[in-house]
Write a protein that binds this DNA or RNA. Sequence first.
DNA 1: CTTCCTGTACCCTGATCAGGTGACACATCA
DNA 2: TGATGTGTCACCTGATCAGGGTACAGGAAG
Lengths: 209, 209
Amino acid sequence: MPVRILIYEDNINLRESLSNLLSLTGDYQVCASYPDCSGVIMQVKELMPDVILMDIDMPLVNGIEAVRRIRTFNQAVQIIMLTVFDDNTHVFDAMYAGANGYLLKKYISDKLMHSIREVLDGGAPMSPSIARMVITSMQKAEPARDYQLTPREKEILQFLSRGNSFKMIAIELNISLDTVRTHIKRIYDKLHVCSQIEAVSKAINEKLV
Amino acid sequence: MPVRILIYEDNINLRESLSNLLSLTGDYQVCASYPDCSGVIMQVKELMPDVILMDIDMPLVNGIEAVRRIRTFNQAVQIIMLTVFDDNTHVFDAMYAGANGYLLKKYISDKLMHSIREVLDGGAPMSPSIARMVITSMQKAEPARDYQLTPREKEILQFLSRGNSFKMIAIELNISLDTVRTHIKRIYDKLHVCSQIEAVSKAINEKLV
DNA sequence: CTTCCTGTACCCTGATCAGGTGACACATCA
DNA sequence: TGATGTGTCACCTGATCAGGGTACAGGAAG
C-alpha cells in the first residue's frame, strides 16, 4: 500500500515537480495537491493522507495556520514544512503549531524522499541549519545564574513559586511561620529583590526552580 | 588540513573502532581518545579539537558534566553525544549543557561520518527519534488555555508577572490604585486563584504572558 | 576552639494585599 | 432601548507581607 501524500504549494512548477518526483518510485501516491489551504480541513478529512507537504507562504491561508487547523482534529498525519523561510519566527511557529519536520526548499531534491521515510518512522526531518536553530534555542534558555541559595532556601522558593502562601509553606514543611519568613528574607537578600512576586518572577524566569 | 577529533568513550572496543573508522579516509585525525573525562578541561585546551565525540555513561565524570565543563571556556568546539540513552532527561540535559548533536549508538556506523560533516557545517545531527523528542517537547509546551482575560487585564497581569507591585502598576499605567485592585480581583476570578503569586505562577507557567 | 553558615524561632511596626460592596461612563449588541 | 461587558474609581476590614532586630543549636571549616 503506497504512502498517501497531500501537497500544499502555491507555485505551480514546484507543485508539479514534487508530484512527478514522488510518483516515480511507486512507493508514494500523491492523492492531491492544492495551491492554497482554504479548504484544508475538508480536504484532509476526505483524503486521509499519511503525509502532508506544506508550504508556508501561500495566498488566503498560510501554511502555519493550516497546520493549526489540521491539528485541531488530526494528530496522526505527519506534516513536513517545505519552505524558503529559515528565520526563528517561522520555524518555531511551525513547530508550535504541530509540524513534524521542516525542510528548506533549497535542499528538497536531495532530502525529500529520505525525509518522508524518516517522518513516517517517527523521526523529525529538519534541514541542518533548522536543527541547529532548534537546539540553540534550547540552550540559550538556561543561563542559570547561581545565587548561592541553600537547599532549604531553594525548597522554600519552590513552594513559593507554586503559589503557596507563607502559612501554607509553614504547615507543609512543619516549621513555624516565622522560620519561613526568615528564609524568605534571606532569599530576598540573595536574589536582590524585595517582594514575593519579584522573587517568584525571577525564580521562574531564570529557572531556579 | 584534516578535522581534529577527540573521543571520550569508556568501552575500549568501541573507542578503538571509532578511531579506526575515522582514520580510514584521511579527512579526519583522531588527536586522542580517553576512557574517562577526569582531565577533560586540560585535554581540550591542549589538543584543540574541532569535534568531540562524547559518551554519557563513563566512570568518574559523566559526559554531560564534561560538556558543561568544556562550555565554560570553549564555545567553538562541536560536541556530538554518542550514547545508548534515549530518555528525555539525558537528551535534554545534554542539549542544555551545550551539545551540538546527539546520536544513538545503534545508528553510529551509518551516520557518524555524515554527522561529523553536518555538525561542522553548522547543523545539529540527531538520530531521528531524538529529533522527534526535541520538537515534541516544544509542542507540548503550549496548551495556552484561554481564560477570557480582557486586553487591559492581560496588560496588568504582565506587569504583575514582572514583579511590579500594585502601586507601581498604578503609577506606570497612570490609573488609581483601586482600579488596579479591581482589575486584579477580576483576574483572580477568571484564573481561579486568590493571591498574587498563584496568579503570577499560573501566568508564567501557562504562557499567558 | 572559635568563627561562620544554616536552620530554627520570636517580636514589632508599617506597608501591602484580599474580599466585599457600590458606583459611573462608555461601547456594543441584541 | 435595555442588557452586557469593560475600564475607571472609592471605601472598609481583616489578613498577609516586608524589614528591622535578636537569639540559639548544630555542623563545617579554619
